[in-house]
Computed example of a mutant assay.
Amino acid sequence: MTFTVAVSGASGYAGGEVLRLLAGHPEVQIGAISAHSNAGERLGSLQPHLHALADRVLDDTTADVLAGHDVVVLALPHGASAAVAAELAERSPRTLVIDAGADHRLESAADWERFYGTDHAGTWPYGLPELPGQRERLAGATRIAVPGCYPTTSILALAPGFAAGLLETRDVVIVAASGTSGAGRAAKPHLLGSEVMGGMSPYGVGGGHRHTPEIEQGLAQAAGEPVQISFTPTLAPMPRGILATATARLKEGVTADRVRAAWEDAYGPERFVHLLPEGQWPTTKAVVGSNHVVMQLAVDPHAGRVIVTAALDNLTKGTAGGALQSMNIALGLPEQLGLEIQGVAP
């Protein structure tokens, strides 16, 4: 069976990445391709790498355009997906709607209102299949909220330790560097090449980044109790990729062997998440353009902490790849379908 998939926000980085992956998916047909301010333009003028779709003209993002497809991917800025999704629920109730934005990720309305400043639109099944118990929630789902790129990296880095009961739930510290594509495609002076090249800078310092409650939510699901984190994002002079270093305090008596065994047990069966052999450390270049996550861990006996470093491509596994992986599960397709592309080197 072939499924029709519509993509909104197709002129942005996330929408373009969704289309790149869909173009190689053997069980889908790309339907409507839409945008807002760029409606009416030829896709190839905005996404010149999408050769097979270059002559498609962007429709406006409306429920009329998107309704009737088997799947709709909303690659829209936060706050923009909820209204479109609500219209689709009335016009096309059987359509699988996948929100690549933030609107439906958080379970806590208070957290949403605090960090985003608008009314909470509700919570959808969370599109991180490797989180314990999540595949069962995604199977047959008609609504999916794709995780943020920082939360994907951070949750995967530490979830095995919390699920195994090895880590303290307070004093969790995560510092992550992201490429500039994580900020979207809109022109911003601080993201100009001359501003970014040759330097790094922090932002959202002091608990102010919007992904903080989402990371805590995912880690709490793994732990079975609340988890408190300190999260600091940084901007790196690269177009795509995330390198996160996550540390947590070990519970009394937990050994390095038990720690490594927990991560091996969690990710040994996984197709897209890889604990590297001891002595090999992650690099963002190894995952560019792929749906893979690579990580390594170490135990610091002096500090009594585990340190996990993880790398992924923020546009692929961090957004579009996570969307397609979850879509496959919801539709009953093999989870890896359309996602077995390897990284690019050098």
Rank of each mutant, 00 (worst) to 15 (best):
residue 4 T to Q: 09
residue 11 S to A: 14
residue 17 E to N: 10
residue 22 L to G: 01
residue 26 P to I: 07
residue 26 P to C: 10
residue 30 I to M: 05
residue 37 S to Q: 13
residue 38 N to E: 13
residue 41 E to Y: 13
residue 51 H to W: 13
residue 53 L to D: 03
residue 53 L to Q: 01
residue 55 D to H: 14
residue 63 A to P: 00
residue 64 D to C: 10
residue 66 L to N: 05
residue 72 V to D: 01
residue 80 A to V: 04
residue 81 S to F: 00
residue 83 A to K: 11
residue 85 A to V: 03
residue 97 V to A: 02
residue 97 V to G: 01
residue 100 A to M: 12
residue 107 E to H: 14
residue 109 A to C: 06
residue 117 G to N: 12
residue 124 W to R: 03
residue 127 G to Q: 09
residue 128 L to V: 12
residue 129 P to H: 10
residue 132 P to W: 15
residue 133 G to K: 14
residue 142 T to W: 09
residue 142 T to M: 09
residue 146 V to E: 09
residue 148 G to R: 12
residue 148 G to I: 08
residue 149 C to P: 00
residue 155 I to Y: 05
residue 160 P to S: 11
residue 167 L to K: 04
residue 178 S to R: 04
residue 184 G to T: 09
residue 193 G to N: 05
residue 198 G to M: 07
residue 199 G to Y: 05
residue 203 Y to E: 03
residue 204 G to P: 03
residue 207 G to R: 05
residue 224 G to T: 07
residue 225 E to A: 13
residue 234 T to Q: 15
residue 252 E to T: 15
residue 252 E to R: 15
residue 253 G to F: 05
residue 255 T to C: 11
residue 257 D to R: 14
residue 258 R to E: 15
residue 260 R to T: 01
residue 263 W to Y: 15
residue 263 W to K: 10
residue 266 A to F: 04
residue 266 A to S: 06
residue 268 G to M: 10
residue 271 R to H: 14
residue 274 H to L: 03
residue 275 L to Q: 02
residue 279 G to I: 06
residue 280 Q to E: 15
residue 280 Q to F: 15
residue 286 A to K: 04
residue 289 G to R: 03
residue 294 V to A: 10
residue 298 A to S: 14
residue 299 V to D: 05
residue 308 V to R: 02
residue 310 A to D: 05
residue 311 A to K: 03
residue 314 N to A: 15
residue 326 S to K: 02
residue 328 N to I: 01
residue 333 L to M: 11
residue 334 P to F: 06
residue 336 Q to C: 00
residue 338 G to C: 00
residue 340 E to M: 12
residue 341 I to P: 00
residue 345 A to Y: 12
